[in-house]
Each structure stands twice: as structure tokens, then as C-alpha cells.
């Protein structure tokens, strides 16, 4: 049986009927056509589908869409746009923090949550904090550089 879902996505209040088994990731991608949220492993390991739920970084593949009822979701589409990138996105661009780009939306969500947390980020702890996102191209160095640069710009 379909469930009624009220959720704010990238600032927009939505109301949809969804089957309970629909994950938040599939809701975003298939129902809202917000395909910036990528699906790699679909069981919480790769981090590509990371989005912000009420400001906290979460795995969109490990959440049912109905669990987001009454909450606010921010995807990569809600973070900036061409010509008006966020400081984190500008830093990713400047540092070459992506190659194929598959993991980038997840890293941006994780990075955004880290920046918003207000904690002082150090180079030494970033590998630990980024362990929940896999990148197969960059070797992570430029990603760490970009997040540190964005921290400095705040």
C-alpha cells in the first residue's frame, strides 16, 4: 500500500505517494529525477549516495523514502549551480578533486556536513572522516586538500 510522504527536497516542499519499499535514493533519482545522487553499492559501503537529512550526512540507500517524512533532504542539486558553486564545490574544481565524478556527490555531501559541523578539521583526521566514501580515481589527496581549502574559506 502506498504511503503519503511530505518532505522538503532542496528547499521545495513536496507531497508524494510512495511504496514503503522505495529507498530515499530511488525516490530522489527515479521519482524526482534528481540523478545527481549516485548509487554504487546500494548497501551502505561506498558512500556515493550520501545526502543531507536535516543537515546530517546519511546514506540515501539505507533509508526508506517514508523515513524522510517531515524532514528536509539536501542533494548535490541543492548545493550550488553552474556559475554559483559552493565554496566546497569551487575547491573541488580548483584542486582536481574528481576524475570520473561518480563519487563526487557523496563526497560533497559528506564534506558539506563536516564544514557545517563547525569543527576544526585537520589533515590528520580527514582520512578517518572520509573513510565512509570510496573514490577509485583520485587517491583521495586532492579531496582532502579541497575540503581543507573550503574550511579555510569559511
Amino acid at each position: 500500500m502506498e504511503q503519503s510522504l511530505r518532505v522538503k527536497v532542496n528547499g521545495q516542499d513536496l507531497r508524494r505517494e510512495v511504496p514503503p519499499r522505495l529507498t530515499l535514493a530511488d525516490f530522489l533519482r527515479d521519482r524526482l529525477r534528481l540523478t545527481g545522487t549516485h548509487l554504487g553499492c546500494e548497501h551502505g559501503v561506498c558512500g556515493a549516495c550520501t545526502v543531507l537529512l536535516d543537515g546530517d550526512a546519511v546514506r540515501a540507500c539505507l533509508l526508506l523514502a517514508v523515513q524522510a517524512d517531515g524532514r528536509e533532504v539536501t542533494t548535490v542539486e541543492g548545493m550550488g549551480e553552474p556559475g554559483r558553486l559552493t565554496p566546497l564545490q569551487r575547491a573541488f574544481l580548483a584542486r582536481g578533486a574528481f576524475q570520473c565524478g561518480f563519487c563526487t556527490p557523496g563526497f560533497l555531501a559528506t564534506g558539506e556536513a563536516l564544514l557545517r559541523s563547525g569543527r576544526r578539521l585537520t589533515r590528520a583526521e580527514l582520512p578517518q572522516l572520509l573513510a565512509g566514501n570510496l573514490c577509485r580515481c583520485t587517491g583521495y589527496g586532492p579531496i582532502v586538500d579541497a575540503i581543507l581549502e573550503a574550511t579555510g574559506s569559511r
Binding site: 551502505g44 558512500g47 550520501t50 537529512l53 546530517d56 550526512a57 546519511v58 546514506r59 539505507l62 533509508l63 559528506t110 556536513a113 572522516l129 573513510a131 565512509g132
Partner: peptide
Amino acid sequence: IGHFQIRNR
């Protein structure tokens, strides 16, 4: 316990 994104949930 998982990554911090997992601990959020």
C-alpha cells in the same frame, strides 16, 4: 561503529 554517516542513523 560504522562511518559517521551510519552513526547518524
